[in-house]
């Protein structure tokens, strides 16, 4: 199974209720959200979601007037082994692979780190981690 996860990145203005509008909209269409992260500037932000049905979620967001795109990321389970975060950082640093950002998620099923590497270096990163014996999640 592919170790690359599709993350949906959505442009949001920083206004009250915007995030709950999006999550409510998806939930009411039976799309479950397994990961949520917001990166923001002063007057806007990028909301990053990993959801159960990508194409349906994208169509719903388009319809509702949100701009969104898919971004490739990968996930490492927190409980996989102690220091999983550090070992990823080290393995990538060794190959001079730049991490654009990382964030943690935790839901009922799992605790994990999400990593974003540029598309150009993504495959290289995944191979590097595999050869270092670091296990990536096929889903979160």
């Amino acid at each position: 199974m592919s170790k690359i996860l599709k993350q949906l990145s959505i442009f949001v203005e920083n206004k009250k209720g915007e995030l709950s509008d999006i999550t409510t909209l998806l939930a009411s269409n039976n799309i479950s959200i397994s990961s949520i992260n917001l990166s923001d500037a002063s007057d806007f932000g990028i909301l990053r979601l990993i959801v159960s049905d990508n194409d349906k979620a994208k169509a719903i967001l388009d319809e509702a007037g949100f701009s969104s795109r898919f971004t490739d990321v990968f996930a490492v389970e927190v409980s996989d082994h102690v220091g999983s975060f550090n070992s990823v950082i080290k393995a990538l640093a060794k190959e001079n692979i730049n991490i654009e950002y990382t964030y943690t998620i935790s839901n009922a099923q799992i605790g994990a780190f999400i990593f974003r590497i540029s598309d150009r270096e993504l495959n290289h990163a995944i191979k590097t981690l595999a050869s270092d014996g670091i296990n990536l999640l096929s889903e979160v």
Partner: peptide, 15 residues
């Protein structure tokens, strides 16, 4: 108005 053509996943790039 931001659209899918210019949307980036990076806040810095949007800035």
């Amino acid at each position: 108005e931001v659209n899918d053509d210019v949307l980036s996943d990076s806040v810095a790039e949007m800035e």
